[in-house]
Amino acid sequence: QQTVNLTIGSSHPTVVPWVGLMQSYLQPEVNKRLAAAGSPYKVVWREAYGGVLYKANATLTSVGEGMVDIGWVFAATEGAKLPLTQVSSYAPALTGDPRHIIEVFNRMVPGTPALKAEWEKNNVVFLAATAADTLDLYTSFPVNGIADLKGRKLGAAGAIALLASGAGVVPVNTALPTMYNDVKTGVIDGAISIASGAVGIKLDEVTPYITQADLGSFLSGAIAVNRDTWAKLPPPVREAIQSAAADYGKQLGDAMLRSREGALKAMVQRGQSQNPPVKVTSLPAADREQWIRGLPNLAQDWAKNLDRRNQPGSQVLATYMAEVRKLGVRPTRDWDR
């Protein structure tokens, strides 16, 4: 039997679902498939999760330069190096189902030459997309409609800030780890965040009002492999990794849905004795629509900007929308029109 040594890592800890699944599913699954195929190869994994080799600000370059062989790339923060991949941030609020986003990107990146090249230019090969659960509101004040949000300061990390203007929210760039403290002391009045993230930092303790705004799931990142490593891997190992990664995507989609349900339930349960108790409500459909319709034409601005730089922005946007519609989604906003 021949062993192949591979280092696998991430900037985030394994409590983050898409990182945890790399360890609990992807790693063993590759070897299971190699064994099932009767291949002589076995992968010996060396783990570097939780930012021990690089931080969230260098996920793409660290895989590209070979600090790890396989790693999670925080694509949502790599606007400069992966411009076309940002499409889901600029065409937001299409679907609240992370499985849709994962499926679309898993088809679109390998199938669109410009997208594929964008990853390879950074010396990495895209393996599988990861998506966050849908965005909701976590606030220290009750939200009955978007009128309650006007002028309120809400934490909104990175591209989530793009959504703020639709409801007159004042976005404050706050990262997840400091969010709890910032709400508690009153620096911000709440946050636009995901349930699976909020539950981990106990955000509900300071934001008893959870309003399901369903502002959409979006691409958080992707698992990618260093291109030099990839070229050197024996073909059976490559195949095993690729097929395991494809199923990793399916596993993750389900896991994210479950994680969201579980998180909301857990927050309500543990927040019962709190004053006021944690309460989950939904933003009225009309208000949600008004919010999304109130956004500037983010997607067109983004696409035209890329077109001007000789990058197929409009084409990628059109493909993305077509793929999303193909899954039966009826967009609130047709960002490509």
């Binding site: 690089y54 931080k55 600000n57 260098a58 370059t61 660290s62 330069e65 600090m67």
Partner: peptide, 17 residues
Amino acid sequence: GLAARMVAATATDALQD
């Protein structure tokens, strides 16, 4: 090669916070 790249990467990204 990797050692040098890690040194340089750390120099620019470790404090970028």
